[in-house]
């Protein structure tokens, strides 16, 4: 890499992280419009959840941010730069879904993390001492140094996820995209990953997480973007991640049941409990029951 490139990259990295998606529509070659007129903006030091059912356009938004698809209308800017420019500067790091990875591939943990450095290397991809040091640091940070010479298929679900997170760290992208990071991992690993994401957020990273694990969203996401082939709502979690918006986002797809009255407590009062779940971690709203249509009878149709 020549000096001009280094200069522009360091300049770019000095900018605060940001994603600006402005009125984008994405139409695939088969004519299917996956996303229409979607807009949202995110700034530095943010963890944002991208929430929607399958087919709502989560992965299309990811692809547009990484430049894999070109919007037929509107534009995406990363740190104020066009996507292609931002990508060539290694600004965006991507952590794939576990199902998208061939775990039998003959690569070791350290090989995968080193792949995060390729964009910083010369054309033959011969690692410098700095590259090796960044890989060591990244492995340390996710607590995977002890496993560095393991083949990736020999790891547990959470360890696998941490390896790819380490690759994103080694890449030093200030925008990190995580695709369904909590699928198939245990609660301990999930909270370890969330802790790490919070650290990165506090260091100024912008983290975008696509998830259908609704229960953990209010725990660690400051911002939420709700999708259903367009942006239904976007903003701070407390204001946006409401029962009303979620019902709009998920329609009849999720189990939604409400407990109140005698099912919940012996005495007569208006406290109620509302559970929204897709059978992973349920999202629970505690509140005062507003409409009395069901006369306190719990709806058990959805499960237990």
């Amino acid at each position: 890499m020549n000096r001009v490139d280094l200069l522009t990259r360091s300049e770019a990295m000095a900018r605060p992280a940001s994603i600006a998606v402005r009125d984008i529509s994405v139409t695939y070659p088969n004519g299917f419009t996956a996303v229409r007129d979607a807009s949202f903006e995110l700034g530095p030091g943010t963890i944002c959840a991208l929430v929607g059912v399958n087919g709502s356009g989560k992965s299309t938004i990811f692809k547009a941010i990484m430049g894999f698809v070109t919007p037929s209308a509107g534009q995406v800017q990363l740190c104020g730069l066009a996507v292609d420019k931002a990508v060539s500067m290694n600004i965006v790091a991507y952590v794939p879904q576990s199902e998208d990875v061939d775990w039998n591939f003959p690569v070791l943990v350290e090989d995968v993390v080193m792949m995060g450095r390729y964009g910083h290397m010369n054309l033959l991809r011969i690692p410098s001492n700095e590259d090796r040091r960044k890989v060591d640091e990244a492995l340390d940070r996710v607590n995977m140094s002890a496993y560095r010479t393991r083949q990736i298929g020999e790891l547990s679900g959470g360890q696998k996820k941490r390896v790819f997170l380490a690759r994103a760290l080694a890449q030093e992208g200030i925008i990190i995209l995580l695709d369904e990071p909590f699928t198939g991992i245990d609660v301990t690993t999930e909270s370890a990953i969330i802790d790490l994401l919070r650290e990165l957020r506090d260091a100024g990273h912008l983290i975008l997480v696509s998830t259908h694990n609704l229960g953990s969203v209010p725990d660690f996401c400051d911002q939420v973007v709700l999708l259903d082939r367009t942006v239904l709502a976007a903003g701070p979690t407390a204001e946006t991640f409401t029962q009303e918006n979620l019902e709009r986002t998920f329609g009849g797809v999720l189990r939604n049941f409400e407990l109140s009255g005698h099912a919940l407590h012996e005495d007569d009062d208006a406290r109620s409990l509302n559970v929204i779940t897709d059978d992973e971690r349920p999202l629970v709203f505690y509140g005062v029951k507003k409409n009395k249509k069901k006369e306190g009878r719990p709806d058990r149709k959805g499960g237990e």
Partner: peptide, 22 residues
């Protein structure tokens, strides 16, 4: 052999390859 690492990355994880500007 000169480009073996890029080709390997392309086979292993084309999305990452694209995301880092290869």
């Amino acid at each position: 052999l000169a480009k073996r690492r890029d080709l390997l990355l392309y086979c292993f994880d084309p999305n990452h390859a694209r995301a880092i500007g290869l």
